[in-house]
Amino acid sequence: MLKAIFYKEWIKTGLYFSLAGLVMLGFAGYIGIYLNRVADLAGMKQLWEYMLSSNEPMITLLKYIPLIVGIGGAVAQFAPEMHRKCLKLTLHLPYEQHKLLGSMLLYGCSLLGIFSLISFLILYLSYSNILPKELQTGLLESALPWYLAGICGYLFSAWIVLQPSTKKRVLQIIVAAFVLKIFFITDSLGAYMPSLWLLLIITPLTSILSIISLSDFKEGRQD
């Protein structure tokens, strides 16, 4: 069943996720090359001294990429389900409805997770030559909330897109925007370490919100 669900999701979103994956990895690769070029041209000395004095990661270009990819992923995946209420077909499948929804979300989260992991690997490998391990770790620690925001943004967007009532959808957008703000409070190297646990709790828990939208859909709620 899971295979069949993934098959359908891939037909629906394969193109989007392929392109989005390329964009995400492309940005990670670009940032990797960019910092290497900065190190080549201005010298690693300048790079290190800037990072140590400002405590800022030099990869803020990446900041919103995972979030944009995540939101786009949820729209690509769930907007076609809401188009002419196609979701009715999906929910009519002989499979437990929560599991069905869970499998669809798992599909998106897995792809985003894989892209994030590869991006991390790219970042890690591209900096291993030019940065000492403290800066490298600080940089990855700074990027971690952004990648978690990508997955969390995807889950919030799924909840929003699946909501049949426009009024509730607006309220949900407001809640999602405020919660996602927590992932972007500061860029400082390693500043998120004391509250990483909170992001790691919020992100997976957000997946259950879609059940509310599903329930509203099943009750035929509309404005």
């Binding site: 037909i11 629906k12 076609p80 002419r84 196609c86 009715k88």
Partner: peptide, 9 residues
């Protein structure tokens, strides 16, 4: 479903 809706994609 009304309108013979199926997965368009």
């Amino acid at each position: 479903i009304e309108g013979h809706v199926q997965y368009q994609f």
